[in-house]
């Protein structure tokens, strides 16, 4: 994909990474960090890239062509970040793609597609029928900066206010599926579970310090018949992640036992033989013994 003149990119990487507990920009992604990975993707299409970081944020060596801008105060939200980015993009850039660092599977085709439609709009943004994606969107530099400045002056910091103000076009995700069938571009990393999940789908190794605790899962009855094993050790920090690990390792469970990323109502999880686990977010502890039990276990 060719670099587009007068088209730039802004990466907002100064977020708090609270749920991740680790700077998302520095997360390893294969041989690179997430920020380096984002730059590699954007570099295929943007002629200029500005990285907006928080004041003391540690960043890897990004090369001289990348401009790094520091927010004066940390964690002021995306609007402030956009303001810094837009202020520092050079004059010859008309429009920019704005993103965070946490969507490592972003497709250059998506950026291209959005920018192709941006001529008469201040904002071109994906929409999935329910949600808008302002941090995977193309903005016109000048008019947007003006409106951002105004909103900040008015102390109206929510990105939603900006969306309201701009002359915008939305692109339905169904259109995007033509070149990104699984909508991987929108998969972002908020938790260690998301991170592991993305690494696994891309067959990249999970760094030791990010591995989930090992969980011993026991199969009885139909699940055992289907998987042909009595037990397995999987890594998961909660049931939700355990379910996705089960689906990945034993795809044959999908349908009869796992439905819609949840356990079929005919089954339930137990920790050992006395504790029923109900909440998919309840933490699991290393070496937990988790049973998948049929509801009619006793009959």
């Amino acid at each position: 994909m060719a670099v587009t003149p007068r088209f730039g990119a802004i990466i907002l990487c100064g977020g708090q990474s609270r749920r991740m507990g680790f700077s998302k920009a520095l997360l390893p992604f294969g041989k690179k960090t997430m920020i380096e990975n984002a730059i590699d993707i954007l570099g295929q299409i943007a002629s200029e890239i500005v990285v907006v970081a928080s004041p003391d944020q540690i960043l890897p060596e990004l090369g001289s062509i990348i401009r790094i801008v520091r927010d004066p105060i940390a964690y002021q939200g995306p609007l402030k970040g956009m303001q810094s980015g837009l202020m520092h993009i050079s004059d010859q850039i008309d429009s920019v793609f704005i993103t965070a660092t946490d969507s490592p599977l972003l497709k250059p085709e998506l950026i291209h597609h959005l920018s192709n439609q941006s001529e008469n709009f201040e904002l071109v943004m994906p929409f999935d029928g329910k949600y808008y994606y302002p941090l995977t969107a193309v903005y016109k530099v000048k008019p947007v900066l003006e409106k951002v400045n105004q909103l900040i002056r008015d102390d109206r910091h929510r990105p939603f206010f900006l969306m309201e103000e701009l002359h915008s076009k939305t692109i339905h995700v169904n259109k995007i599926k033509e070149f990104d069938p699984n909508l991987d571009s929108f998969r972002n990393i908020n938790t260690p579970g998301d991170y592991r999940n993305i690494l696994q789908t891309t067959n990249l190794p999970i760094p030791e310090e990010f591995r989930a605790p090992p969980i011993h899962i026991e199969f009885y009855g139909v699940p055992r018949l289907i998987t042909k094993v009595a037990h397995a050790t999987l890594e998961a920090e909660n049931l939700a992640e355990l379910i996705s690990e089960l689906s990945r390792n034993f795809p044959e469970l999908k349908g009869p036992v796992i439905v819609n990323e949840s356990l079929h109502p005919a089954y339930r999880f137990m920790r050992g033989t006395s504790e029923f686990l109900m909440d998919l977010q309840d933490p699991l502890v290393a070496n937990d013994k988790i049973l998948i039990l049929a509801v009619d276990a006793g009959g």
Partner: peptide
């Protein structure tokens, strides 16, 4: 449906 799978696939010996 899976609600009766145990009986269909294995019978009560699954207990």
């Amino acid at each position: 449906t899976p609600a009766t799978a145990k009986y269909r696939e294995l019978g009560t010996v699954a207990n």
